[in-house]
């Protein structure tokens, strides 16, 4: 039932995209009919450049995300587990977090030029905070009774982390991962678009400046589909990590 409605919605949307330029509501030079976008996509899919661009985007996204998650989890566990360290870093984290990652664009360009590293810098910076903050929430959420129990049985510090802190934190890590995955994609595309590092974003900019509007839309659709896949997989992983936890967390890219 829901699936049927959803399909209806998607078909309706596609229908509108097809009709609106055809009946002249919108200039087809700005918004070509959907069928032309699909045709352009078909043409793109046949070119090695498309696959190279897609590969660059996925690679940059995945590497940036991996670095951010690793750094966020390790630092989060360390900072979260040591109360003094946590207290001392809270203000700094609160201060650095809202700094928009795009502020780093000129610096990245200066340091690395239009290379994948420039974009990687943005991706890592933006998604790192998502993970770090969630891990800190998670460590804080550890049941004090469980902690006391572990201590009274003289668990070693490592065992405490592995058996008590980590299981509680895991769902938060997964939430951080989901948020970071979405944010990383936004910044990956942003970097490609603005800095000109290789990837779908750059292809979109190229298509736009060369007037290949249908190709531009086709590539935008590809980024959207990739985004949907990222969201679906990340949500599935998050749900798998079973624990209920506050659903009030949201993705906050910057």
């Amino acid at each position: 039932m829901t699936a049927a409605l959803g399909l209806l919605g998607l078909l309706g949307f596609v229908g509108i995209l097809e009709l609106v330029p055809r009946i002249g509501l919108v200039d087809p030079r700005f918004l070509p009919p959907f069928s032309e976008m699909v045709a352009a996509l078909g043409g793109e899919v046949g070119t090695p450049e498309f696959w190279a661009a897609l590969g660059s985007t996925v690679r940059g996204w995945a590497i940036g995300l991996a670095i951010a998650v690793a750094a966020g989890v390790v630092l989060g566990m360390v900072i979260g587990s040591i109360p003094l360290l946590r207290a001392a870093t809270t203000s700094t984290i609160e201060f650095l977090r809202p700094i928009p990652s795009v502020a780093l664009i000129p610096l990245a360009v200066l340091l690395y030029g239009p290379s994948p590293q420039s974009t990687l810098l943005l991706v890592v910076y933006a998604s790192f905070w998502q993970v770090l903050v969630q891990v800190l929430y998670g460590v804080q959420d550890v049941d004090p009774v469980a902690r006391e129990t572990a201590r009274s049985y003289r668990f070693s510090a490592w065992t405490q982390v592995r058996r008590v802190t980590w299981p509680t934190t895991l769902p938060y890590v997964m939430t951080g991962f989901r948020l970071a995955a979405a944010v990383a994609l936004i910044l990956e595309i942003t970097g490609e678009l603005v800095i000109g590092s290789p990837g779908l974003g750059k292809q979109i900019a190229v298509a736009q400046s060369s007037g290949a509007v249908d190709t531009m839309y086709a590539l935008v659709i590809v980024t959207g589909v990739f985004g949907v896949l990222v969201n679906l997989v990340a949500r599935m992983l998050e749900r798998r990590s079973l624990h209920w936890h506050p659903s009030v967390r949201g993705e906050v890219p910057r």
Partner: peptide
């Protein structure tokens, strides 16, 4: 899911 920055060229 569409990364918002691609809206700029559009």
């Amino acid at each position: 899911a569409i990364p918002p920055p691609v809206l700029v060229p559009i």
